[in-house]
């Protein structure tokens, strides 16, 4: 990103982050991701590819999941933002998705995990995930280089079951096409 510059004046914006209004002055080219990490020290949101391809920077803006690396902080003036730091209860109780990740060991290195979890919460808000196939498609914007996908799927299935939604199971999943199987 750009170093400090006197070419454009900083804009004063207010973001409500995890329920708390935060005012800050940012240059217009500062992404929401960099505003969170560098201006507000909320480093739970991760910078992976910085190009919207990996999903590590996923946060919820007004309840919807987005890539925080591909939006400018100034474009989100007045928005309500939830990051991984804001998901647990005030008493420290883990969010059900966080608890399911611990229970199912749904990570290895953990770098993609905040984005995965925020994305799952966003997916649940959207309400379109029914089958395993749906889940895989609707989580395709979050990459895990360690390959923890099977356990991430287990965590998602459990969370859906706990929410009383139609449980996803292998039964209603599409079989793996033959051309995807090893020779």
């Amino acid at each position: 990103m750009h170093a400090s510059s006197s070419l454009a004046p900083p804009e004063t914006i207010t973001l409500t982050i995890n329920g708390q209004a935060r005012q800050m002055a940012v240059q217009p080219w500062v992404t929401l991701l960099d505003a969170l990490r560098e201006h507000l020290d909320l480093t739970g949101t991760k910078k992976g590819c910085d190009h919207g391809q990996c999903g590590a920077c996923t946060v919820l803006v007004d309840g919807k999941r987005i890539n925080s690396c591909l939006t400018l902080a100034v474009m989100r003036d007045g928005a309500e933002i939830t990051t991984i730091e804001g998901l647990a209860g005030e008493d420290g109780a883990l969010h059900p998705v966080q608890a399911a990740f611990v229970e199912h060991d749904a990570f290895q290195c953990g770098y993609c995990t905040p984005g995965q979890i925020c994305s799952i919460v966003g997916m649940m808000n959207e309400g379109h995930a029914r089958t395993d196939e749906d889940i895989r498609e609707l989580m395709s914007g979050n990459l895990c280089r360690c390959g923890a996908y099977p356990n991430i799927m287990d965590a998602i299935r459990q969370t859906l079951r706990e929410r009383g939604e139609k449980p996803a199971s292998e039964k209603n999943a599409t079989p793996i096409p033959a051309y995807h199987l090893a020779e």
Partner: peptide
């Protein structure tokens, strides 16, 4: 097309 995050934006 794209991913759910991108389609939301």
């Amino acid at each position: 097309g794209a991913s759910p995050q991108l389609r939301n934006m």
